[in-house]
């Protein structure tokens, strides 16, 4: 029982991470058809805002010393600010460009952010101790689970409920859904485009910061490429979920997490190193049968 629960919790917490990432990408894709390749580098940047710029091997902790009730909002705000800044400086000028052009621009922006971090902090991974109390295990139904996993799952579920009610019940959420559905028509009907798009970027940046906090406390290192893997899985989740479908992205994120953890358990030890390759392979299989994704974007209308 204990080991089964362990697997369930592993799957749920990894899936949460992917779902949060997929949500951040799908939100922006929904309002402006931008596939944001800079998302992973925003995640990495959110970890590095806790450190003072230096190329030394030892991290000089700066904002990381704040108590948690200040630290968490600080990182979330930084993520949102960076994401909004990328919209104002770069993506705003691509409003009328085709999606492929925007996608390459975001890829380039991601590289600029990454090498900016490299310039300030060097490419060596640095060990940081972020919210160390979270690594203590707690006992749930016979399984010893790190507290962080429980918090990750709880936070994700909270975010999902919060976001759903935000999109459903507030005026801003309504505008955002309208913009995602038909941007031109929404503008004609009085939705303020800039506000909606900046809102989507701020939400997406805050989600990236949440991932950064989880990853940072989980691995205890700050690395300029730390966002890349989550971002890739999040992308795959948005494709499998059906581009632009928030619900689909979340479901596919959890699904990917579950597949990855289950493969880790059932694959023979020799093949475990190839876990991610198997996950990508599974994705390709899904795409053979449902090239348009699990939920098509029209499904968002009723679901979120």
């Amino acid at each position: 029982m204990g080991s089964v629960m362990q697997v369930v919790f592993d799957a749920a917490s990894l899936g949460s991470l992917y779902a949060l990432g997929a949500l951040g990408i799908a939100l922006i894709f929904g309002v402006m058809r931008l596939v944001n390749f800079a998302h992973g580098d925003v995640i990495a940047a959110c970890v590095f805002v806790l450190l003072w710029p230096s190329v030394d091997a030892v991290a000089i902790v700066f904002a990381g010393n704040l108590p948690w009730f200040l630290l968490v909002p600080f990182v979330l705000a930084m993520g949102a600010a960076l994401s909004v800044a990328s919209e104002v400086v770069v993506f705003r000028r691509f409003r009328n460009a085709n999606p492929a052009t925007m996608m390459i621009a975001s890829f380039a922006l991601g590289f600029v952010i990454r090498y900016f971090l490299l310039m300030l902090y060097s490419s060596r991974p640095k060990s940081i101790s972020l919210l160390p109390t979270l690594s203590q295990p707690v006992e749930i139904m016979g399984a010893r689970i790190p507290l962080l996993q429980v918090i990750t799952i709880v936070v994700t579920i909270g975010v999902l409920f919060g976001l759903t009610s935000f999109l459903r019940r507030t005026r801003f959420g309504l505008e955002m859904r309208a913009a995602a559905e038909n941007f031109t028509m929404a503008r004609v009907l009085g939705v303020r485009a800039n506000r909606v798009i900046m809102g989507a970027f701020a939400l997406s940046g805050a989600l990236a910061a949440a991932i950064a906090l989880i990853l940072g406390s989980q691995t205890g290192t700050a690395n300029i490429v730390m966002g890349a893997n989550v971002m890739l899985m999040a992308f795959i989740a948005t494709v499998i979920g059906g581009m632009g479908s928030l619900a689909g992205a979340v479901i596919a994120g959890f699904l990917l997490g579950a597949i990855a953890v289950v493969m880790q358990v059932i694959l023979p030890p020799d093949a475990r190193a190839f876990r991610d390759a198997f996950v990508y392979g599974a994705v390709i299989l899904v795409l053979i049968f449902r090239p348009q994704g699990l939920l098509t974007a029209r499904g968002t209308k009723e679901r979120v």
């Binding site: 596939v35 492929a100 992308f235 795959i236 494709v239 990508y280 390709i284």
Partner: peptide, 9 residues
């Protein structure tokens, strides 16, 4: 776009 992301994968 889905094809682009899949090539990345």
């Amino acid at each position: 776009i889905a094809a682009s992301i899949a090539t990345f994968a």
